[in-house]
């Protein structure tokens, strides 16, 4: 099972905050593109599909742009 665990991901020590922030930025840009293309707001599923991620991950990414970091400063100040 250690094997499975290693196989299942190669993301090593990447912090959640960084990853979500990157996804969040990508989501913002894609949202604009989709809105223009379809002439309406994309739904969360459409955007997640376009990004190739799960809706749940997108929900966290949408929150992340600054919040995770500011939380960090709250906790460790």
């Amino acid at each position: 099972l250690g094997e499975i665990k290693r196989f299942m991901r190669d993301d090593g020590m990447i912090k959640v905050s960084r990853s979500l922030k990157e996804l969040g930025q990508k989501a913002k840009a894609l949202k604009e593109t989709l809105a223009k293309k379809n002439e309406r707001e994309p739904t969360i599923q459409e955007l997640a599909d376009e990004m190739g991620i799960e809706v749940e991950e997108l929900v966290m990414a949408l929150e992340a742009n600054s919040d995770v970091e500011s939380l960090q400063s709250v906790i460790y100040e």
């Binding site: 991901r9 990447i14 912090k15 959640v16 990853s19 979500l20 749940e56 966290m60 995770v68 906790i75």
Partner: peptide, 21 residues
């Protein structure tokens, strides 16, 4: 899926690694 995000969102306040989450 909801339970997973709820826990992940809560634990994220500690800024763990992607692997830990």
């Amino acid at each position: 899926a909801f339970a997973r995000v709820a826990v992940a969102a809560f634990v994220s306040q500690l800024d763990p690694t992607l692997e830990e989450i």
